[in-house]
């Protein structure tokens, strides 16, 4: 009962924050609400017994990515144009997509079902990790060893994205307009 109450409370807060982001007119407000949304989703991941993801989401979503958005706003503009009239088309697209997705969930295994097909691989990891690694954290073992190639690729993607940002932003050529740094 308690678990369900907390569940519904956190999910309700998440939905409210998401709606608030859509309605928020100022960009700084939207960035802040994005951080709050990430932090709430981290809380919910913790309730779902996934502390590693929750940890990452709290550090990345609520911390670093909010700072990146704010830093971008500080060198672009903080003013967003007011939407003059209500647009019907995006709402229709979203409602339609949502309806199709909900139709798709109807024959999915129920929440928390231990027999769900998605757990077949996971259960094998759970059985093998204590024997082959003798370390308690299954997530680290799967991340580093069973899925080491994946993680290698992801690390390279992070490096590549960093290089992309540096290429886009670092040096100005002489003919580009001068900037005020502070």
């Amino acid at each position: 009962m308690f678990q369900q109450t907390v569940d519904i409370l956190v999910l309700g807060l998440l939905a409210a924050t998401a709606l608030a982001v859509v309605r928020m007119r100022t960009l700084i407000g939207a960035a802040m609400l994005m951080g709050i949304y990430s932090f709430l989703s981290a809380s919910w991941m913790l309730i779902l017994d996934a502390p590693d993801v929750a940890f990452t989401e709290a550090a990345v979503g609520a911390g670093v990515s909010t700072i990146f958005v704010l830093a971008t706003l500080s060198i672009t503009t903080i003013r967003a144009k007011r939407q003059t009239k209500f647009q019907f088309a995006p709402l229709a697209v979203v409602v339609l997509t949502g309806a199709v997705l909900i139709y798709g969930t109807l024959d999915m295994p129920h929440f928390g079902d231990p027999e769900a097909p998605v757990h077949r691989v996971g259960n094998r990891y759970i059985k093998r990790v204590p024997e082959e690694f003798k370390i308690p954290n299954a997530v680290t073992a799967v991340l580093g060893s069973y899925r080491g190639f994946d993680t290698f690729g992801e690390t390279t993607v992070v490096l590549t994205a960093g290089l992309g940002v540096l290429c886009l932003l670092r040096k100005r050529r002489e003919d580009e307009p001068k900037v005020v740094t502070e």
């Binding site: 958005v69 996971g122 997530v139 799967v142 899925r147 994946d150 992801e154 994205a161």
Partner: peptide, 25 residues
């Protein structure tokens, strides 16, 4: 709990913030 979704999403978060940074740049 199943460790596999955790692992996949954990890396996706960090890659996500890096690609978000490219979009911002």
């Amino acid at each position: 709990t199943d460790p596999l979704p955790s692992v996949l999403m954990l890396t996706a978060i960090v890659v996500g913030v890096a690609t978000t940074a490219v979009a911002l740049a």
